[in-house]
Design a binder for these strands. Sequence first.
RNA 1: GCCGGGAUGGCGGAACUGGCAGACGCAGCGGACUUAAAAUCCGCAGCCCUUAAAAGGGGCGUGGGGGUUCGAGUCCCCCUCUCGGCACCA
Length: 858
Amino acid sequence: MSETKTNVTANQPEQRELRYDPQRIEEKWHARWEADPTLYAAEPHDSKRKKYYVLEMLPYPSGALHMGHVRNYAIGDALARYMWMSGHNVLHPMGWDAFGLPAENAAIKNNVPPRQWTLSNIAHMKAQMKRLGFAYDWSREVTTCLPEYYKWNQWFFLKLYEKGLAYRKKSKVNWCPECATVLANEQVVDGCCWRHEETQVEQRELEQWFVRTTNYSEELLAGLDKLEGWPEKVRTMQRNWIGRSEGALVDFKIDGPTGSAGDKITVFTTRIDTIFGATSIQLAPEHPVVADLIGNDPHLHSKVEDLMREQVRAREAGDVGAIEKHGVFTGRYAINPFNQEKAPIWVANYILMDYGTGAIMSVPAHDERDYEFAKKYDLEIRIVILPRRTGEPPAHGEPEQPVLPYTEKDSLLINSGEFNELSNQEAIEKMSAVAEKKGFGKRTVTYRLKDWGISRQRYWGTPIPMLYCEKCGVAPVEEKDLPVVLPENVDITLQGGSPLGRLPDFVNATCPKCGGSARRETDTMDTFVDSSWYFYRYTNAQLADRPLDTATVDYWFPIDQYIGGVEHAILHLIYSRFWTKFMRDLGIVRNDEPALRLFTQGMVIKDGAKMSKSKGNVVSPDDMVAQFGADSTRMYSLFATSPDRELDWQEAGVEGVHRFLGRAYRFVMRNAGAARGSQSRDGARSAELSPKSRQIERKLHQTIKRVTEDFQGRWHFNTSVAAIMEFVNELYGAEDEISSGRFPRELLADVQRRLVLLLAPFSPYLAAELWEVLGEHQNLLRHPWPAFDPALAREDEITYAVQINGKLRSHVVLPAESPEDLVRERVLADEKVRAAIADKQVAKVIVVAGKLVNVVVR
RNA sequence: GCCGGGAUGGCGGAACUGGCAGACGCAGCGGACUUAAAAUCCGCAGCCCUUAAAAGGGGCGUGGGGGUUCGAGUCCCCCUCUCGGCACCA
């Protein structure tokens, strides 16, 4: 093969060399890089170079890479390569988030075992990544579905249990009676099962494992302030998710007979100051006291059932905001402890049991939702607070719309007994104090954040290492018995019950406490457990006796840059932060946060819509690589727009980048002769250069400056690539001088070497090829990033834009660094400027140094 | 409903702290090379008016309306459309 190719080259050297053929170049270097597995390996420890840990979110092995992956990894790879060249010891790993539902769905659909399906997907996607030229240290690869990894999920679970951070409680799941199995939200379509479209999904209560993420609510919230390298958007989303709110709990005594749920209703309110306007109590349909209040009235029972169903349906549809508010009066009353008034007790579909206490005091005059509800059911609306400045309050009669919460300092309470005339803040203080003193309430802080339910009633996940003994009850598997291996020969296409529950070999176990027979937990873990700590495992992926080595983690952590999609802004990134804090408290890591800096890249769309099979607008990375090469595909994904914005994929754009790379390729192929054997030129002799070659030298330094600053600052790689394009265009403009031999040989050599270095993070294949063409042999990643000389980048002359009253009227060329007086003088002397001023008076001259002059005339 | 982005030529997008709007690329047009085409190389190019044409002028222009400023794509207020997130958060 290679013989034939050599002959062709020998026969037609010119043509052969000048055509940019990415397939030939990329296949050649792909083979060489494959032969050297240590090429992108990070040093275990390096005291001379600073460490840099760049991490891209690991993919789910769905079958093939999509353009969103390519974009994510092109960003990370460019950064990793730049950091290598800037002299860092770079850790750049990759792995697979390999457990999860799609493998089970595929198994059911195509009758392939989940493990086989997953592993073959991984093999394919890994080959795609390698073909795209991503510089990963594959010796650290992590695959979460392998026992070597999930063993440590189980180990962590035992630690959580030991620390009281894992516990069991009843919780609702979607249940399909036809499948006799639990469904994920994703498997519920319009309230029905995905496999049985006629079958209504039921809600069932099951004992499930939870992790006490809420123990860390305050710290997770406070930590956000320190994460300055995270997008403000993500920090805001997490703050809202954690949802700290200060308020008070207030007890309302139930009037009349009560039952097992107690004789009072505790409400949570952030606005205790409005309590004199509380004209009813609203309960969540699941509130325990509801059963006591409605007794066995069949009508009320069915009404409450309806309300509950409405709430569940709205939640599933993700449409809770739009729920039409319904409620039912229980016929009972509760006593407002502040004024002893009787407030009717209602049950309402918009009250959530899992926030606050599941009971609220309804203040229709000052809350929109309460107002809407009160209007609908004709409940009393009583104004109790107004801005002081409005003067006469409409103290009687109902407002046209809710008089929304006044929190200004000059607000004023009315209709509130002894608290009248107080401001909102004063009232909150005083009323809370009174409630605490009299024992019917107290100040409190609540969070929206809930504990993390990690039980999944499915097969393809990490088995939860717990046992149930008839005598001893719940018992953890002993550490020495880990891993609890997920059985492989399981027929998950059978319907009914848990696949693991059908395997006697799996289920039947021995109790570690009493030695008697025990039943094994058949639930598996949420896959978010896998992704909560995988990035620690990369630091020592082969470690057999521990999940991680503390000293090694200490060297690499925190992650210097984490890159991924904004869709993970909440769940994954909160669980990861929680896990880090948990590990810190276990004493096995020392950092508080997993990542110092986070970058969320924009979505890849096509023709204005998200790529999806049903729309038929999916672009395959393989097709792009086959047509234009990996370099062009990657570079286009960086060039089309800045990385944080949505990217509209245009194939013609890839072709354009391919054309540009061809131009760069041809320039070096034509002029490499000058570089080979020539010493690099180190500036400082600009005075001897012709105007053209000085211009090239200046542009070279300006380009290095722009690209370097993009890496250090905003990551607008689209402008980096544009800058390199401009530079190459400039080189083509000097071709006459170059081909005639008048261009300084050393400068020509220098220009080419630095051009190739600038291309290296974006188009690694082409850079490697051209580096070799230039007679260089050192691995580009070990070569220092080019430096620029600010003095050589500076312009000698500046063209000032001249405005008259803000309208552009002329341009004046002046030597750089002209003093302001001279600029003013020369501008006012300019012919066009004088004509524009004519006989008007010059009122002011504004000089913006190095840029613009605005002459204000009257 | 709430929260958070976004809107710039025919298209993707530049313009970093308010300072020449449209860099760079695509598509388009003209030219060179070629028997021809492709490829390549060079050039033109926001819209409108003025002009026989060109040069040159002039006006308009960053979703819409107001404002601040010598000067606004950029800052402030109101509105429209659009994308994303959501657990009605009491």
